[in-house]
Design a binder for these strands. Structure first.
Lengths: 150, 150
DNA sequence: GTTTATGCAAAACCTTTGCATTTTG
DNA sequence: CAAAATGCAAAGGTTTTGCATAAAC
C-alpha cells in the first residue's frame, strides 16, 4: 500500500505542527529525513536512509540521521522493528509461544495459546510466500512501569 | 512455565545427538552454554549468558559464547527475539499493521487486518500489564527464497 | 594423529558523544 | 542575538575474526 503524495504532505504538516508546538526547530535535514522514512515501504536502516537523503542533501552526516530518527521515535512519528537500542537476545524456548512486550522497559514475557499458533493467513499474505507459523505480540505497559508512572 | 530438570536433560540429549550426527564436536563449553539458554526464562543477551556460564567455567570467553549461540541457532535449537545480526530498522507506517517475515533472508512486508489489530488477550496476559495493541507476525519463506531453494 | 574448538587480542561494525560552527526562530 | 542543530572526528559498545594453543574424536 503505497502512500499518495497528498498523504505524505499531510503527514509532513502534522510533523511540522508537532515540532513547532514542542519548541523544536524545523530544519531542512529533519524535513528530508522525515519524508524519506514516511514514504519508505521496506523498513530501512539508518545507513539506507542516510544514503537516500544524501542524494538530495550532500552535506548531511550519519549522526544527524540517527539523532533525527530517535527524535521522530520520541514523538511517536515512527516506530522500529523490534526493540530499539538493544543487543541480540536469545530464546531457548522452542515450544511455539507468543510475547507480551512492555513499550517502556522492553520486558518480554512468554505466553501460550494454541489459537494464536496457527492464525489464518489471508490471500494477501499467502501471495508473499509460504506461511509456516504465526506469532502474536501484545504491546502495552507492564505492571511495574504502570506503577512507576502513577 | 519453568522447565523441569528432566526436560532440560531430555533437550540436552537431543542436542548431543544432533551434534554427533553432524560431526560437530561436543565440548564442555557448548554443553554449559546450551543448558544455560535452555533453562532461561527471560531472553538473555550474550553477555548475560557469558556471566552465568563463567561462574561454572571460569576460563570461558565471550567469543566462544557468541560462536556457540550462532551454532545453536543454525541447528534450530534456539531462536532470537527479532532478527539476528541486524541493525535497527525504522518503520514510517503508523497505521496499525502486521508483518510477514522470511526466515531465510529477513525480508519483512506489511499487511493489514482489523481482526489482528485487537486480538483478545487471555487472563494470563492481562495479569502482566495493560495491553494496548496486538501485532501478528507470520513467518515462512518468501517467494524469492522459495525459488532459490528449489 | 588429525581435525576442530577455544581463548586471546585485535579488528570490524554500528551507534553515540563532545565540541566548534552554523542555522533557526 | 540566544538557543538549538549540524557536521566532524573521535569514542563507545557489541559482535566478529585471525591465529596459536588445547581439546575432541
Amino acid at each position: 500500500m503505497k502512500k499518495s503524495p497528498e498523504e505524505i504532505q499531510h503527514q509532513l504538516s502534522h510533523f511540522m505542527d508537532l515540532l513547532k508546538r514542542a519548541g523544536v526547530k524545523i530544519t531542512y535535514q529533519r524535513l528530508e529525513i522525515f519524508q524519506e522514512v514516511a514514504k519508505s515501504q521496506d523498513h530501512p536502516d539508518a545507513e539506507t536512509i542516510f544514503k537516500k537523503v544524501r542524494a538530495r542533501v550532500p552535506t548531511i552526516s550519519l549522526d544527524t540521521v540517527y539523532r533525527t530518527l530517535w527524535l521522530l521515535l520520541d514523538y511517536g512519528l515512527i516506530t522500529t522493528l523490534g526493540q530499539p537500542r538493544e543487543r541480540v537476545r536469545f530464546d531457548g524456548n522452542m515450544i511455539s509461544h507468543h510475547h507480551f512486550v512492555c513499550r517502556k522497559c522492553g520486558m518480554a514475557r512468554d505466553f501460550y495459546s494454541h489459537e494464536f499458533d496457527s492464525l489464518p493467513a489471508n490471500e494477501e499474505v499467502k501471495g508473499l510466500g509460504t506461511v509456516e507459523s504465526s506469532h502474536v505480540e501484545f504491546r502495552g505497559l507492564c505492571s511495574k512501569c504502570l506503577q512507576d508512572s502513577e
